[in-house]
């Protein structure tokens, strides 16, 4: 296969990162960001700072025309001021939309320095803070991509079906705001982003190239924020699931909060509405974040990674890879108490 797009690489910082968490990922995938920090600190011995004073980037509000641009710039400026205060220059957002916002705002500031000056003025008026622009902005998935081969050496498991010996077939889905706004800011650019594909290949899997690979996951803000539009959201997801179904993927991996969420949860909704599931046996296709994928292969506890929070359960996937898990611990809360099992869906097997 021709890999012309492999030539599209980007500069990704090597160490000393300022981490910015996502507004929604900690709810959707509560173990992913913790896993990212653990991977960087414990597996890669990197310095990454996680500031408890951080806050939204306004991304969803900005893209929904609720938050004005000037406000977004001031909020971004405050986040950069936290990075500056701690002496960091490499900014790493967890969320793809945040990555898009930071890339776009810094691009605007570079093109129009008067906007940068205005943001500095607004920030000073608002909270008497100052900031420097980051030297490097990389999405958290870029960092894992950069060190994918180093991580591969530490992994206990590979993306291989232990029963057949064949690579697992993995659908990768890239958030729109990763490379569709500024293609040259994404590894592999917008047409064939390589950031997740690179991880999958390095870790033994096989990327599924299906017709609707680039299609929206259904998280388009205007599709789901307005309840009346949610039919558009689920129809986009359905189109993707139908397109990937003949390839019988073992799981889906994404680098975007919304993509992972909607590709996972809408499978339940479709199964309730149409009695349709997208794997042969009726369990649905598991959807992982890239941190969860990496964490599983590194041997992290699947329940600490938060896999039980997903709609489509991952036990069958773990069985294929050969990852052990303790079913009795699946719903143990942080308090130590075992929670009761969630209600089972009517049509999706678990």
């Amino acid at each position: 296969m021709n890999r012309y797009w492999n030539e599209y690489q980007k500069v990704i910082a090597d160490n000393h990162f300022f981490y910015e968490r996502s507004c929604i990922r900690q709810t959707f995938f509560p173990g992913s960001e913790a896993a990212f920090l653990r991977i960087l600190r414990e597996e890669l011995d990197k310095d990454i700072f996680d500031d408890f004073r951080q806050h939204t980037c306004t991304g969803i509000g900005y893209h929904s025309d609720i938050v004005p641009l000037e406000t977004t710039m001031t909020v971004v400026a405050r986040l950069f001021s936290l990075m500056t205060e701690h002496g960091y220059k490499n900014y790493v957002p967890s969320c793809v939309t945040s990555f898009g916002v930071f890339t776009e705002i810094t691009h605007m500031w570079n093109e129009k320095p008067e906007l940068l000056e205005k943001a500095r003025e607004n920030l000073w008026k608002a909270c008497k803070r100052e900031f420097e622009l980051p030297e490097n902005i990389a999405h958290a998935s870029d960092i894992i991509y950069k060190f994918r081969n180093e991580l591969a050496k530490k992994m206990k498991y590979r993306l291989v079906n232990r029963f057949t010996g064949k690579p697992l077939r993995v659908v990768e889905h890239i958030g729109c705001h990763y490379a569709k706004i500024f293609p040259d800011k994404g590894v592999g650019k917008a047409e064939f982003p390589y950031v997740l594909a690179g991880m999958i290949e390095s870790w033994g899997g096989e990327v599924v190239d299906y017709p609707e690979r680039r299609h929206c996951c259904g998280f388009g803000f205007r599709q789901y924020l307005i309840q009346e539009n949610r039919g558009y959201s689920i129809s986009n997801t359905k189109k993707k699931l139908e397109s990937m179904e003949p390839y019988e993927p073992d799981f889906i991996v994404s680098n975007c909060p919304g993509c992972s969420m909607f590709l996972d949860r809408w499978q339940y909704t479709i199964s309730e509405m149409e009695h349709k599931t997208y794997d042969r046996d009726g369990y649905g296709i598991p959807v992982l974040t890239y941190e969860e994928m990496a964490g599983l292969l590194l041997g992290y506890d699947p329940w600490e990674l938060g896999l039980q929070i997903h709609q489509i359960q991952a036990e069958r996937l773990m069985d294929k890879i050969g990852i052990p898990y303790n079913s009795k611990e699946k719903y143990r809360a942080a308090s130590g108490k075992i929670l009761r099992n969630p209600e089972k869906p009517a049509n999706l097997l678990t």
């Binding site: 296969m1 012309y4 797009w5 047409e191 190239d209």
Partner: peptide
């Protein structure tokens, strides 16, 4: 035509 990756030539 490989430079227009979205059209899939060579792929």
């Amino acid at each position: 035509a490989r430079r227009k990756e979205e059209l899939g030539y060579g792929i």
